[in-house]
């Protein structure tokens, strides 16, 4: 199967600390890939290199064969890489619908339009996206008064407005109640399937990971230590040591970044 995303030899050091070292993996179309690892494993650094906020020291990131390293974050967005944030980021002074409309306006390159009324643009498209994440009833509410779980769903709608081929989700369920987590990931999984979007996500909640990920990558101390399906990862001795025997590992080798 042709990979949507090809990551080869990705490395980044901060001072003397190798935050990400020689990470390589591929992501197939429509795949739901989890990137897990203990705190400080390098997941966020890895993410930030994929979406252009950090330049890697070495390595390449190819989206459908095109090199992303060296591109500005906004160019990478335009290439079809959407993202959601660990702590949700929305435009708080706008309504739910307006947030999605802004994404659509940006996607259709109408940002420098000085004349049209933004609140009346792309309304059906925005509402369709809000329907997708069951946020339609809240379309007129200011974002500043939404519950956190609703903001997470709104962020998903915003990310989808760009019709991404690849969605990077940094801890999509962080800060949510357990029941909401399952619902959000089911929703995401459904959308992925329906639209053929590929998703790479990081996550701390193992229930979420094992329930939804098609494949799992395990990162520890900047290196990929395992890769496989849920069952394979569960039975991997090294992964068990990292997660369950973490205390002794850290005690012996000192803390990492």
């Amino acid at each position: 199967m042709m990979s949507v995303l090809e990551v080869r030899g990705l490395s980044k050091s901060f001072g003397g600390v190798e935050a990400v070292a020689d990470v390589s993996f591929g992501l197939a179309r429509g795949e739901f890939l989890a990137l897990i690892g203990p705190n400080g494993a390098g997941k966020t650094t890895c993410f930030n290199m994929l979406n252009g906020y950090l330049g890697p020291d070495r390595g390449s990131v190819k989206l459908n064969g095109q090199e992303l390293v060296g591109m500005r974050p906004r160019r990478i967005v335009r290439m079809g890489v959407g993202r959601t944030f660990q702590i949700t980021l929305t435009f708080l002074s706008m309504t739910v619908r307006e947030n999605v409309q802004m994404a659509l306006i940006a996607h259709h390159r109408r940002l420098y339009d000085l004349w049209s009324r933004a609140a009346q643009m792309f309304v059906p498209e925005a509402d369709a996206l809000l329907d997708l994440v069951s946020m339609r009833e809240q379309a007129g509410r200011p974002c500043s008064e939404l519950a956190y779980g609703d903001l997470k769903r709104l962020e998903l709608a915003i990310a989808l407005a760009h019709e991404p081929v690849l969605l990077l989700m940094d801890e999509p369920t962080a800060g949510m109640a357990p029941s909401e987590r399952v619902a959000l990931m089911e929703l995401t999984a459904g959308i992925v399937q329906e639209r053929g979007v590929s998703v790479l996500f990081t996550e701390h909640d193992m229930d979420v990971v094992f329930a939804h990920a098609h494949r799992i990558l395990v990162l520890n101390r900047g290196r990929l230590i395992a890769e496989g399906t849920g069952t394979e990862i569960r039975e991997n001795a090294l992964v068990q040591e990292v997660y369950l025997g973490g205390g002794t590992v850290f005690a012996r080798e000192g803390d990492d970044a």
């Binding site: 974050p73 906004r74 967005v77 335009r78 993202r83 944030f85 980021l89 929305t90 435009f91 708080l92 002074s93 706008m94 307006e98 409309q101 802004m102 994404a103 306006i105 940006a106 996607h107 109408r110 940002l111 420098y112 339009d113 000085l114 004349w115 049209s116 009324r117 933004a118 609140a119 643009m121 915003i158 760009h162």
Partner: peptide, 24 residues
């Protein structure tokens, strides 16, 4: 009230979000 003004307001609210939408 036009996209341009909304864009300015969006940047004020969250630069990171604006950039993630592909805004310059």
């Amino acid at each position: 009230h036009a996209p341009f003004g909304y864009g300015l307001r969006g940047i004020r609210d969250s630069e990171l979000r604006a950039e993630a939408l592909g805004m310059d």
